[in-house]
């Protein structure tokens, strides 16, 4: 399935946008299996099973979880991958 490459969506982002930490957020939905979400976190981020399960449970119980934080382009890449696994994910600026 998802073997996705990095895609720069827009070349108009400012240097400030690229420098500010960006958060990758995953939202809960009632359909995706908990085991499936855990597997996706392991595959996309390379997280160990325990960390992937902890994040999955945060999504499940709190409705959302910050699953990664870092540069804009990498955040876009991760959101792309998460969408390819049909998870509800978006990026947002770190507070």
């Amino acid at each position: 399935m998802p073997q996705t490459g990095t895609v720069l969506v827009s070349d108009t982002k400012s240097k400030e946008d690229l420098d500010i930490p960006w958060n990758v957020i995953v939202l809960n939905d009632p359909i995706n299996l908990m085991s499936y979400v855990t597997m996706v976190f392991q595959r996309v981020f390379g997280y160990p099973r325990h960390k992937a399960e902890t994040l999955m449970l945060e999504v499940h119980h709190k409705g959302r979880s910050l699953v990664w934080s870092g540069g804009r382009e990498q955040a876009e890449h991760y959101v792309h991958q998460l969408h390819s696994y049909q998870l509800l994910a978006h990026l947002e600026k770190s507070e």
Partner: peptide, 24 residues
């Protein structure tokens, strides 16, 4: 199945729908 990547960046969302969504 093809959600936007941001909650408020219209241009980014439009680019995404144009470039990424067809691939997905």
């Amino acid at each position: 199945l093809f959600p936007n990547p941001t909650t408020g960046e219209t241009e980014t969302n439009q680019d995404w729908q144009r470039l990424i969504t067809p691939e997905l």
